[in-house]
Design a protein around this nucleic acid. Sequence first.
DNA 1: GTATTTACGAACGCTCGCTATCTATACTGT
DNA 2: ACAGTATAGATAGCGAGCGTTCGTAAATAC
Lengths: 409, 409
Amino acid sequence: MSKGTVGGGGTTMLRRINVAAVLDAVRRSAPAPLRVAELVERTGLARPTVAQAVDELLDAGWLQQHGPDSADRSLGRPAIRVSLRGRAAPVLGLDVGPHRVTVGVSDLAGRKLSLVRRSGPGWTAQELLGVIGEVINEALSEAEVPAEDIAAVVAASPGIVDEHTGRVQLVPSVPGWSAIDLIKHVRGLLDCPVMLDNDANLAALAIAAARGGTGTLLAVQWGERLGAGIVIDGRLHRGTGAAGEIGFIATDTDDVINPEDSRGPLERAVGSEAIAALGRQAALDNPQSRLAELGGEQLDTADVFAAAAERDPVAQAVVQQVARTFARALAPSVLVLDPTAVVIGGGVARAGAVLLDAISDQLRLLTLNHPKLELSALAEDAVVTGAMRMALDEVWQRKLPTPAMTSTT
Amino acid sequence: MSKGTVGGGGTTMLRRINVAAVLDAVRRSAPAPLRVAELVERTGLARPTVAQAVDELLDAGWLQQHGPDSADRSLGRPAIRVSLRGRAAPVLGLDVGPHRVTVGVSDLAGRKLSLVRRSGPGWTAQELLGVIGEVINEALSEAEVPAEDIAAVVAASPGIVDEHTGRVQLVPSVPGWSAIDLIKHVRGLLDCPVMLDNDANLAALAIAAARGGTGTLLAVQWGERLGAGIVIDGRLHRGTGAAGEIGFIATDTDDVINPEDSRGPLERAVGSEAIAALGRQAALDNPQSRLAELGGEQLDTADVFAAAAERDPVAQAVVQQVARTFARALAPSVLVLDPTAVVIGGGVARAGAVLLDAISDQLRLLTLNHPKLELSALAEDAVVTGAMRMALDEVWQRKLPTPAMTSTT
DNA sequence: GTATTTACGAACGCTCGCTATCTATACTGT
DNA sequence: ACAGTATAGATAGCGAGCGTTCGTAAATAC
C-alpha cells in the first residue's frame, strides 16, 4: 500500500470523479445557487451528465434545490437552481484556553451557524471537561444541528502538537490538563473524526482563508505567549511539528532555551507580560509622563500603547524598543520564508497602528522583499474560525476524490 | 478559465488516467523493468486494461520492451518486461557561472547520460554565450541525444529569479550578462520549454531528491556568496520569489542592507572571502601558529579549515567564531521552518566535520527540534543535478494528468 | 392567443474497462 | 522423450458511463 499511487479504475470511478467535479463547482460558488446550465459551463461536462450528478447529490443530501429566482426575470422556462446544503455535514471547532472555552459550528459552505464563548476564572482539568461539554451542546442547539450530524471536529491547543497521535508537549496552562483526555471526551460526545492542532496554526489557517488562500502567510499570535503559523498556498506548514515557534528566537541579550521554562527568549522580551513590565519601569523612571498618569500602579500593556498613541515620548520609546526587538528577531525568518504577508493577531495586536508602524520601519531596514504587514481582522475568534476551517478541509478532502488536475490540452 | 477546476470528462479521459497510472507505476520502479502482472498488482487495474495501456505506451515510445530475464528462472511462460525508455524525453540542465559552464543531460528515469564541464578565466557575456552553445553540443553528442529530442531545459542563475518572466535581479557576476539573452539563446538551439531558476533553489531540489523527497529541507549554499533553497515535501518554496536569501540576514555587528552592495551582512561576515580575511588577521596576530605556517601571505579559506582540523587553537577560534555567527543567524529560521534537515553545500562545505560540529553545537543551544545537520554529498554538481531534476519534474507534470488521488475506500 | 425563448427529460450510439475463456510457452518429472 | 503443469498473453462478451440529438414543458413578449 505505497501511498501516492495514481488512481485508476473503471467507469464507476469516472462517475465519482464527475460527481465530485459538479460538487466542487457548486462549492466554489457558494453560497450563490447555480443553474444546471452554469454547471455545464463550469465543469465542461455534458448536460445529462451534470443532471444525473445533481440528482445523485440531491438524493444524498449534499445539494438542495431552490425555486426559480423571482428577481431573475429572464425569458424562457425558469431554471431550477441548486446550492450547497450546508447542513449535510456541519463541522465543529473548539478553542480551549485556561480561562475561556469557545465553540463554533459551521456549515459546509463555511457559514458560521453558531459561536458560543464562555469565560471563567480558572477551571480545574475536570471542571474544564464538563464546561466543554456544556458549551458544545449549547453551540449545537443554537445552530439547530443534532450532535450526530457533525462530520468533523478540530480542537485547538496551545503547545506543540504531534499531528497524528495528538500528543502535546509544553502545555503549562492548566495543571493536570491533557489534550488526549480532551480528544477522548469529545469522541465520546460526537461520533466523528476529532483532530487536534496548535492554536497558532489554526489562527493562521483562518487568516489565510480570509485573505484568499494563495501565497505565503506568516501569522503571528502575540499575547502573553508568542507563536506563529505558516500557511503556504492554503496549506499549513508544520515542519517536524514545531514550525512557527518564534517565541524561542534568541534576542540580542537573551538566548537561553530552558526546558524548565515553557517560554522562550523572545516571549520573555516582548510578550505582553514583558511589555507591561517595561512600561512600569519607564513610568517609575518618568513619574510625570502621560504613561505614568494613565497606568498608575496597575499599569497594563494596553496603557503603554494608549500612551504611545497619545504621543507620549516615554511610552513611544518603550514601543520602539519592543518593535525593534521583535523586528530583529523576525527579520531572518522573513528573509528565508519571503512571505506575501505578515499578519499579527492576539492580544498585543489591539495596540494597532502604533506598534505596526514601528515594526514596519524596522523590518524595512532588515529585509529584501518587504511583506505586507497587517493586523488580524478576526481578532480573538481567529482560532475557532481556523479550527472550523480545518475541519471543513478534512471533510472536503474526504469527499472529493481528485484534488486537482493539470490540463493536458 | 479559473484554474484549479476539478477535471471531469468522458471515457477517453478515463483511458488517459489509466495509461498515466501505468506509466507512473513504471516510473516509480525505474530503472527496474516490470512484468505486466506486477503492473496489474500495483495499479489495481485489470490485465487487459494494463496490456492495452502498455501497447499504447510502447507505440508512443515511452516504454521499451525487454526480453525475458535469463536470470529469472521461474516456472511457466516467461513474461515480457517493460521499462521506461529514457530516451523518449531527455532533459538538459545548465549551470552558468562566470568562470565555469556545466551542462548535464539526463534521461526520463533520472539517469545521467552525460555531464560536461568547462572552466575558463572569465569570459565576456558574448563569449559566454558561445561557450554555452559549444558545451551543450558536446554534452548532447556525448549522450548520443539529438538536439530535437530534448523535452525541457532548466538553467541555473545566481541572483533572484522571477519564476515566470525569467527576469533576474542582483546579478553581479558577469558585466553585461543577461539571463534573458541566455534563455533566448538556448531557445534558439533547442526547441523546447526553457526555464530559469536560482542556483541555490536547484541545488536544494537535487539534495532533496537524493534524500528521498519528504520532509522539509533547508539547503545552504555556502561559498563566496551565501544562499539557501527550501524544499517542502519535494516542492520548492519560493515565497514571493526571494525565499532563502540567508546572506542578507543581519549579524550582531552588521545589519546594513545596501542596494549598491549585492552582498548582505551575513555574506560579508562568513562568506569564504570573509573567512579567509579572518584567517589572515589571526595569522598576523599569531605568527608562530600552524595557521600562519600553512597559509603564508596568500592564506586561503581552505587553510583555515586545514589548520583547525590539525587542532591549531588559533584556527579553531576562527572557525568557532564563523560557526557562531552562522548558527545565530540561522537559528531563527530553523525555529520557524522546523526543517527535517539542514544540508550545507558549496565551497565552504569542503571544510568538513570541523565546521559542521561547531555549527551543530551552537545550533543545539538555540533551537527546539534539532534538525539533522549534514554536508551535501553532491558537491559541485548539485546545481546541474537540480536543474535536470526540475526539468524532469516539468516533463512528468505535463505527461501525467492526475498528480495524486486520495483513496476514498 | 400565438410565437419565442429557455430549460428539462428521454432515447440512442459510442468508448472504455472488467470478467471469463482460450491459446501459447517453457520448465519439470517420470 | 513425452506428458503434465504453471504462468503469461490474446480474445470475446457484458456492463457502465458519457455525449449527442431530439422532443417536451414552462415562462415571457407581442
